[in-house]
Design a protein around this nucleic acid. Structure first.
Length: 242
DNA sequence: GTTGAGCGTT
């Protein structure tokens, strides 16, 4: 039974967060819950997922009520094969607001709305901004298989538009942390596609490109070193010889 | 059906 359906974290003041790495993309919170609940009181399980595709990013956060139970889970479940993949369980180092975490618990001041932005020192804000920048940089450099994501995303979009997605594993198991509904996602994409997705993406004027940059499909770093005449004579050499 | 470094949501 999963109670991880409400919005937002329930209570992170006295919880210990564990970071679960290397989980399968199809592993859900309900799959992790019985595994981690055996070693202690699991308060919440959260699996970050991609904004566009809505799929799992490959890691999860399991919040325990007590530190010793969390440590027990780390010791027992670290290296365990779950869903065909060897997961890595460790204490979280960064909180949801980029707070520093000591052994899964937030050691920064409690996140009080309206108070932290004012009582925050400039130097501290800079420090926190450094964390934010680091995370942003790493996340941005994470996009390696973008082309694959694109085609897959388009495929899912078309499927969701053509026919409603009916994931068989979702029914009967309770809603995990699926705030983004498929219907809302498709609607959002439909209204956002012709407005925002196309406008900033396409470049109407090929101003930044070199006049021969588009014609040159070769990725040679020194296109001038290889003169066309040289290349031509090389290719003409065997012909001329014959 | 599809990939695989990493630290999080309303």
């Amino acid at each position: 039974m999963s109670h991880f359906g409400r919005a937002g974290p329930p209570d992170i003041s006295d919880t210990f967060s564990l970071l679960i790495l290397n989980i399968s993309f199809r592993t859900s919170a309900d799959d992790l819950f019985p595994l981690f609940d055996k070693y202690g009181k699991v308060v919440d399980i959260f699996i970050p997922r991609d904004r566009r595709t809505g799929e799992s990013r490959g890691f999860a956060f399991v919040r325990y009520k007590y530190a010793d139970e969390a440590q027990e889970a780390v010791d027992k479940l670290d290296g365990r094969t779950v869903d065909g993949r060897e997961i890595a369980v460790q204490f979280a180092k960064y909180g949801p607001n980029a707070e520093r975490i000591h052994q899964g618990r937030i050691i920064e001041k409690s996140p009080r709305p309206g108070l932290r932005s004012r009582s925050r020192s400039p130097s501290r804000s800079r420090f926190r901004d450094d964390y934010h920048r680091d995370r942003d940089y790493r996340r941005r450099s994470r996009s390696r298989s973008s082309d694959r994501y694109r085609s897959r995303e388009r495929h899912l979009r078309y499927r969701s538009r053509s026919r409603s997605i009916s994931p068989g594993y979702e029914r009967g198991r309770g809603r995990r942390r699926y705030g983004y509904d498929e219907r809302r996602r498709s609607r959002s994409l439909e209204s956002l596609s012709p407005r925002r997705s196309l406008t900033p993406r396409r470049s109407p004027s090929p101003r930044g490109r070199s006049p021969y940059g588009r014609s040159h499909y070769r990725r040679s770093p020194t296109p001038r070193s290889l003169s066309p005449g040289d290349c031509r004579s090389y290719s003409r050499s065997p012909i001329s010889n014959n």
